[in-house]
């Protein structure tokens, strides 16, 4: 933007006033529920239940968080989710890249047929039940593999990576490397991967957020509580209001129990969502880059 002192005409003044007002109102509408939840999690159960909390915490307390830290399942879930996210993302990015690179090579024989094999799965699928029966027959249900294998590669992401490689790694580079005696494996590991850092960062973020937030695979395929990811425990606590029986022991009356449960819900929302929220502003530019890379068709 060039700096220029132009005197605004009357219409423009009104335009900017209206524009800023609407944008600020929308931002506050997004922000308010978030602030309310954080404040409620730091307030006493009584204050929340009686509707005394409007913006800031009332009767500041850490009871909710203390309950979260005592709640064993949440930490089992946290541990499992971290594992699924790290291992799953590693598998995802590896498979996506080894699929994207050969398909980015224009002269690969059978390229269009193989590409079609992948893109067709974006349009049509067997559906929930055949997938479930397959997982069952393969003996994968109730194992960690049911969380890692079914979504091992997203075809959309593979196309994004392929487009990136095509437009960023010129053919001449490959030819020069070949003359120096470099084969395809070496070229992939020494040239393609280092030059694809941007797109790999984008893929990592997309896949990792997907793993962190997903509950559907676990919901369908897992029944062993020790394998549950965090989201399943969150579903039990937040949506079904089911709590571990040994959780709430040291509070006496039924009202106090109710209030503690409610407080625990607010705190667990904060504890489970805060990592992504705090992380996001730092990696925002990669997500936005991803949207641009994705919108360019190869």
């Amino acid at each position: 933007m060039r700096k220029q002192k132009v005197k605004l005409c009357k219409e423009d003044k009104i335009f900017y006033a209206v524009g800023y007002t609407i944008v600020i109102i929308l931002t506050l509408l997004v922000l308010y529920p978030v602030i309310y939840i954080v404040s409620a999690s730091f307030s006493s159960g009584d204050a929340v239940a009686q509707g005394k909390v409007w913006l800031w915490p009332v009767d500041f307390t850490l009871d909710g968080y203390k309950a979260v830290f005592r709640y064993r399942s949440i930490w089992v879930g946290y541990r499992n989710t971290i594992f699924y996210t790290v291992a799953g993302t590693l598998i995802n990015v590896s498979i996506t890249m080894i699929c994207a690179y050969p398909l980015a090579r224009q002269n690969l024989k059978g390229r269009s047929a193989i590409s079609f094999l992948f893109t067709f799965t974006m349009l049509f699928s067997g559906g929930m039940i055949p997938k479930y029966i397959l997982m069952k027959n393969l003996g994968l249900t109730n194992t960690i593999w049911s969380m890692l294998l079914p979504g091992a590669m997203s075809v959309y992401n593979m196309i994004v990576a392929r487009t990136f490689i095509q437009s960023n790694i010129p053919n001449e580079m490959l030819e020069a490397a070949k003359i120096d005696g470099c084969d395809d494996f070496q070229f992939f590991f020494r040239m393609v991967l280092p030059l694809s850092k941007t797109v790999m960062a984008v893929l990592t973020l997309w896949y990792a957020v997907g793993h962190w937030n997903s509950y559907f695979s676990a919901f369908l395929y897992l029944s062993d509580k020790n394998l549950y990811p965090l989201q399943i425990f969150l579903k039990e606590i937040l949506v079904q209001s089911q709590f571990d029986s040994d959780m709430i022991t040291d509070v006496a009356t039924a009202t106090q129990q109710q209030n503690l449960k409610m407080l625990l819900k607010y705190s667990v929302i904060v504890v489970s969502t805060a990592p992504l929220m705090c992380f996001y502003p730092f990696v925002q530019k990669y997500f936005q880059k991803g949207v641009m890379v994705g919108s360019v068709k190869g």
Binding site: V30, V34, Y215, L234, L238, K265, I269
Partner: peptide, 15 residues
Amino acid sequence: IVNMPHFISVTVMVG
């Protein structure tokens, strides 16, 4: 700010 809620999971959103 307006982008952030996108990263809330479905379970937490419904919660």
